[in-house]
Structure formats: C-alpha cells, structure tokens
C-alpha cells in the first residue's frame, strides 16, 4: 500500500537520508511549507538521477511565498492538487 509523504520542514542531511531510506517504489512526495527547500537538494528533478523514478510535487503557494523558481522538470500543484493526491494515495506520512 503506497503512501503520500508530506514534507513540511527544510532539508537536513539526516532528513534526506531518512527519506531516501523509507520512501518505497510507487510512493508520492509533496513538499510544502519549508519543505519547499528540498527543491535545492538531490530531490530536485534537475539534479536527481537517484530520485528520478519518484513522483514529487511542490506546493505552488509555498514556492511563491519563498521566491523559489520552478526548475525544469519540477512538478507543482496547488492546494486542490494536494487534496487530490491525498485522495489518490491510501495512506499519508507527515514529516515535520
């Protein structure tokens, strides 16, 4: 059973390692609040050969609030898209 991982805190080397270890094939990740800063780590689609297979989304409102540009290949959703992801995946895990 796959999960939606909701990442709301800025990345640290420890949280990147934990996330990498726990996320399963078929899981979906959404970065919200300060989790948006994962866009500048290896989870960023432009520099993420290791994570290319993962479906990752960044919340548009929180990207705009932090002045983070959308990079090529980065998928974004608004809050309604966030709700749709939570409906699609049977479970959720909140990282905060």
């Amino acid at each position: 059973m796959n999960s939606l991982h909701i990442i709301a805190k800025a990345p640290t080397s420890a949280s990147i390692a934990e996330l990498s270890a726990i996320v399963d094939e078929g899981d979906v990740l959404i970065f919200i609040e300060d989790g948006i800063y994962f866009a500048r780590t290896e989870f960023s689609p432009s520099s993420a050969p290791r994570f290319n297979h993962l479906e990752c989304y960044f919340l548009e409102e929180d990207l705009a609030a932090r002045g983070i540009d959308i990079l090529e290949g980065m998928q974004t959703v608004d809050t309604r898209g966030f709700v749709a992801l939570s409906a699609r995946l049977p479970r959720s895990v909140s990282w905060y």
Partner: peptide, 10 residues
C-alpha cells in the same frame, strides 16, 4: 508555524 494555516487551506 505555518502548519495550522496549511491545514486550514487544505
């Protein structure tokens, strides 16, 4: 934190 506002919007 921003969390309760995120929950409200959700």
């Amino acid at each position: 934190s921003q969390a309760s506002k995120s929950a409200l919007r959700f």
